[in-house]
Design a protein around this nucleic acid. Structure first.
Length: 484
RNA sequence: CGGGCGGUAGCUUAGCUCGGAAAAGCGCCUGGUUUGGGACCAGGAGACCGCGAGUUCAAAUCUCGCCCGCCCGACCA
């Protein structure tokens, strides 16, 4: 531990102040920054590259299942926004409006909303393209940014603008719509667990946390290292609510007019914040190999021009092999001392580092250090690419297992509200309880237990006990947590 | 959006009480010695002191307004 502290100069220790640690890591690892405009962030290349990896993965998944990318307008006429009552009410506090335009800042006759999400404008537009059941399902998605006028900002977790994908689909039956919401939830789970190595609880949201206008909302909840939950994605089933408001209808096989069933779903750049908070440590980031902008960094070690040449030739003898294998690697030839480079790439969370000096060149091997254990091992250069691919896979699963173990160690089962209150006075994590479903009780828990909310409802669970608040027969099993 | 705190070089900060020549460490640049876990020597560059008004002979320093950030609350992908 003592030694490890010596590795770190630039960031607040996680145990001293988690929030400052988070901000330090995001900024020092060059993921993102504030822009000078309140609440508006700039995502830097290293952070954006992680988002791009997520984009690619998810885009492939939805294309495979027949979804298509569209681009819909940034600005939404007020009348479009106003049609679905619950939706309007839910988003009203967060909408930014364009009210003036032109050199003379002339007042617009009809203010335009900057999209906080696009259900309304897509609903208003998509109906043109839907006439018959033969036009369904209509599976749309767009990659964009949205604006929500937040009062409090944190990099990646809550900014006034954030980048995401929003999928909007339209179906001929309720079942199809519900299946779609489930399908996407499964994709999201795969992104979280298989790509980001963050284990998640998946389930339904309580009514108070349901998306405005939705019949129900499904969501992913990850557990961060400070014991707080983070919502990492949502998938909503709307039934016919939006179709009714926007008159999105089709002729069914019996030539009857019918309203569509719709869904929407999104994951955002918040995912990058989840990577930081689910895996990071006092030395900085730890990036899952599958989304790592740099998977393997090579630090050459040499004394003079001759030994540099020797090391360089050695590296060049196997580097093309890594490239051909599709490994994202970088050789750090910067004019720094090796120790600086070690610290630098650890802060950036690169999974594997190869220290390569004259001794290694002579022996035909490299010294490999992984970001999780920091143990040094020698690998022969024969078959290096293949070996590294295996190491990256192992790293990915070790990271996931570590996060799983953390989640397990911080998941509890309690029986009464008093126990819940006592628990959250001491620590965080997920607490499973059985609940009767009374909304007033949910609000009471939030007040009495200091901001604890129902993160997810496990619909598959059999319930037999008593409600943790009122003692009446419970109807569902829910996970409680304090959340971001 | 309310309450509290803050903004001085790329970063972290001192200076502000009590107005009077803008400082330090780290980082950066150049040269040299170095290089297997955050080196050293020498030289150098870099600051509309957040922005705008005001008070004053004189403002980083005092006053007011605004902008941006942090913490706490209410609200939240």
């Amino acid at each position: 531990m003592e030694e490890q502290q010596d590795f770190v100069k630039d960031i607040t220790k996680m145990s001293d102040d988690f929030d400052r640690w988070y901000t330090d890591v995001v900024r020092k690892a060059e993921l993102a920054d504030w822009s000078g405009v309140r609440g508006m962030m700039v995502v830097r290349p290293y952070g954006w590259a992680m988002w791009e990896a997520i984009q690619r993965a998810f885009d492939d998944m939805i294309k495979e299942s027949g979804h298509e990318n569209w681009a819909f307008p940034l600005l939404i006429p007020r009348e479009f926004l106003m049609k679905e009552a619950e939706h309007v009410e839910g988003f009203a506090p967060e909408v930014a409006w364009v009210t003036k335009a032109g050199a003379r800042m002339e007042e617009l006759e009809d203010p335009l909303a900057v999209r906080p999400t696009s259900e309304t404008i897509i609903g208003a537009i998509i109906k043109r393209y839907i006439q018959s059941h033969r036009d369904l399902p209509k599976l749309t998605n767009q990659w964009n940014s949205v604006v929500r006028w937040e009062m409090r900002s944190r990099l990646f977790l809550r900014s006034r603008e954030f980048w995401w994908q929003e999928g909007h689909t339209f179906h001929a039956s309720a079942q199809e719509g519900m299946d779609e919401a489930n399908l996407i939830l499964g994709y999201y789970r795969s992104i979280a667990e298989e790509w980001l190595a963050v284990p998640v609880l998946v389930g339904r949201k309580s009514p108070s946390e349901t998306f405005p206008g939705a019949v129900y909302t499904l969501a992913l909840e990850g557990l961060m290292r400070d014991g707080l939950a983070l919502q990492m994605g949502t998938s909503h089933y709307f039934g016919q609510n939006f179709a009714r408001a926007y008159d999105i209808s089709f002729s069914n096989k019996d030539n009857e007019r019918e309203l569509c069933y719709s869904t929407s779903w999104g994951i955002s750049t918040r995912m990058v914040g989840a990577i930081v908070m689910a895996h990071g440590d006092d030395s900085g980031l730890i990036v899952p190999p599958k989304v790592a902008p740099v998977q393997v960094v090579v630090v050459p070690i040499f004394r003079d021009a001759d030994s540099r040449t020797k090391v360089e030739k050695f590296i060049n003898s196997w580097a093309p092999e890594l490239k051909a294998a599709g490994i994202r690697f970088r050789v750090d030839w910067r004019d720094e001392r090796p120790g600086d480079k070690y610290a630098h790439w650890e802060l950036k969370g690169v999974p594997l580092r190869l220290n390569v000096g004259g001794r290694d060149a002579d022996a035909g091997q490299v010294e490999m250090v992984d970001r999780l254990s920091r143990e040094k091992r020698s690998l022969p250069v024969a078959g290096l690419a293949q070996a590294l691919e295996g190491e990256l896979e192992k790293f990915q699963s070790r990271l996931f297992e570590r996060a799983q173990a953390f989640q397990r160690a911080n998941t509890f089962e309690l029986g009464t509200l008093d126990e819940v209150i006592a628990h959250f006075r001491e620590r965080g994590g997920f607490v499973w309880v059985q609940w009767c479903g009374d909304e007033a009780e949910e609000a009471r828990v939030k007040t009495d237990a200091g901001g604890v909310t129902i993160r997810t409802i496990d619909e598959s669970a059999k319930v037999s006990g008593q409600c943790f608040v009122c003692g009446r027969p419970a109807k569902m099993r829910v996970a409680l947590a304090k959340a971001y």
